[in-house]
Design a protein around this nucleic acid. Structure first.
Lengths: 341, 341
DNA sequence: CTGAAAGCGCTAACAT
DNA sequence: ATGTTAGCGCTTTCAG
């Protein structure tokens, strides 16, 4: 496979003119005569000339590329945030390179190195669930590469981020449970180091308080957000002397697993146990009953993150870190309404 | 944001030695004294030196990058194929750039241009469902960029590809329906231009024949693979004077939509209508009843496609196009077994 | 053991 | 209106 991409030089030699003339003709530079310009452009097309982007990057410093690291790429939440990022960055003339940490801190570090090596102009990251120590971000900061976190964030004092109103969302979901007749409201949480887990927990506890319900350790389960661990967390809750009559889940994947286990044990949703998920996954409407969930403005979160990053990138003055909090919306479907079904 | 990445020159000046010495020291070249080598490497670390990849690419021709175009990035099938591609290419030292056509032929063309501009060393593509004309691949072939298709393919005479045994899979699924008590087996097909649609249709028809069932136009519906159109295709089938007692769907997304509609009309799955999907999506086990589906070896398909491409890439002799057919497996769950439930 | 110089493909300032 | 030249950062002969 001798690639031998044609270069300006090749075209110049074939036409017996100089390289710069070819370069200019290809850019419709007014200095070049229309006739020559056309001749050059024709030959270029014919020979399938493509400018070598590496030469241009080298010359123009700056890759016009931004790197994105997400915990995984199959979850609709992340794909959708990525779409938002792409929409905004494309508009601004940046390319996007996506990589996945597969929820592993080690892979996250690898990805950072790779992207830094690629010389991305900036980085947008959502922490892996394993990430509990944040030293590996030093490298990014010291290298002066702009950085923005989204959803799962850290070091919010130093680094800009885009997050959901997790506290408020969890609180509202808890109130919703209470208003629709639930009294023993459980929560299946995720890894305690994640800001989303902490904030949602606080919101849940605040919600209980608002409803005048007392907090019970028993009703607080925890999982690592895999379907398997969500299943055992659910089993734990269902093994209580008095089982919960509602379960709030840290995300929809966990809610799906809980739903499956609840049904398996012969309990009815929402009659016996009401269920609410988080993030409003794509498949919330194909399960039965349809899952009530807290919808995130995913596309907009991506756009905001990209906006934050590019502002930072293009402004000469280093901006002070900002945190943008996005409003979520409780989308009420079948799984949470005790009265109806 | 003055990036000002440090260069070899910067390091050289700081140490009052030549650029080439620094370059060699960083690569542990035996010619350089251990003492100097260490000194250079320390300074490099301290200054966060990162080699400029664009300079290297420019020098060493060939991007060591391969481009992938998938119809979408949220479907588990594609994410999983991508994982397989990444696994193999990473091993071979290639990076992967992923882009999505969003099932649009126009975007597919755009993506091709972008990736070609990026000078990827090769391309792995799954056609968008809208792609019915294949001229835009000429550009790739003429530019001598190796190309491999997977799943949805075209021009198989000229271009290597990796596909599933669609014909056989559809035939087997049809037999499975018959063996478990179904007699009026319907098929919801996708856009007729896609090879997967044609092949699965043939398999379905062959299956009917094998079972001694007669082919009925009524039982053949078609959709564009969106949930909405799948729903209307299902409605059409359910509006027949004698409704089908089994439905084979072109993919799981369609099957999910069909399932929802069937349940909505008060019919039971599989008692009234048995259901089988295609590609074994991630969520097949969270729906109720769990969906019987034809599982594709997605990861392996990705690996094979990457293997095909890199062989082509690295061999000097142009290989003759090959088509690799991967074996699928019918994963029997609840939705298809009339006898049991 | 180390340095000097050429060149990858391109752009742009500086000639002509 | 077109050509010449320098230089982006790096590797790699070729010379010491």
């Amino acid at each position: 496979m001798d690639k031998m991409h044609v270069s300006l030089k090749d075209l110049a030699e074939e036409l017996h003119i100089s390289i710069s003339t070819v370069s200019r003709a290809l850019k419709n530079h007014p200095d070049i005569s229309p006739a020559l310009t056309q001749k050059v452009q024709e030959l270029a097309k014919q020979r399938h000339y493509i400018p070598n982007p590496y030469a241009i990057r080298l010359l123009k410093q700056g890759s016009k590329t931004i790197g994105v690291i997400v915990p995984d790429i199959v979850t609709h939440f992340y794909s959708s945030v990525i779409s938002g990022i792409e929409a905004y960055t494309k508009e601004k003339g940046y390319a996007v390179v996506i990589s996945s940490s597969q929820e592993s801190c080690l892979k996250e570090k690898d990805n950072i190195d790779n992207l830094l090596n690629l010389r991305v102009d900036g980085l947008i990251i959502c922490l892996s669930k394993q990430t509990t120590d944040f030293k590996h971000f030093d490298k990014i900061i010291e290298g002066n590469t702009p950085l923005v976190f989204f959803d799962r964030v850290c070091r919010t004092g130093e680094i800009s981020s885009v997050v959901a109103d997790n506290y408020e969302a969890a609180r509202m979901a808890t109130l919703h449970f209470f208003q629709t007749g639930s009294k023993r409201i459980a929560f299946i949480n995720g890894p305690g180091d994640l800001n989303i887990a902490k904030e949602r927990l606080s919101g849940y506890l605040a919600g209980l308080k608002d409803c005048g319900l007392k907090i019970s350790k028993d009703l607080l389960a925890s999982c690592d957000m895999t379907p398997e661990s969500a299943t055992s967390a659910t089993q734990k809750l269902l093994a209580l002397d008095v089982i919960p009559d509602a379960i709030l889940s840290i995300n929809d994947t966990v809610a799906f697993a809980a739903m499956k286990e609840i049904k398996k044990q012969g309990l009815k949703i929402p009659k016996d146990i009401a269920l609410v998920g988080f993030t409003d996954e794509f498949h919330a409407t194909i399960v039965e009953p349809e899952l009530t969930s807290i919808m995130h403005p995913t596309f907009e979160m991506g756009q905001e993150a990209a906006r934050l990053l590019i502002n930072q990138l293009e402004s000469k003055i280093p901006e002070t870190p900002r945190q943008i909090v996005m409003r979520t919306r409780l989308v009420i479907r079948e799984s949470s309404i005790k009265n109806s079904k």
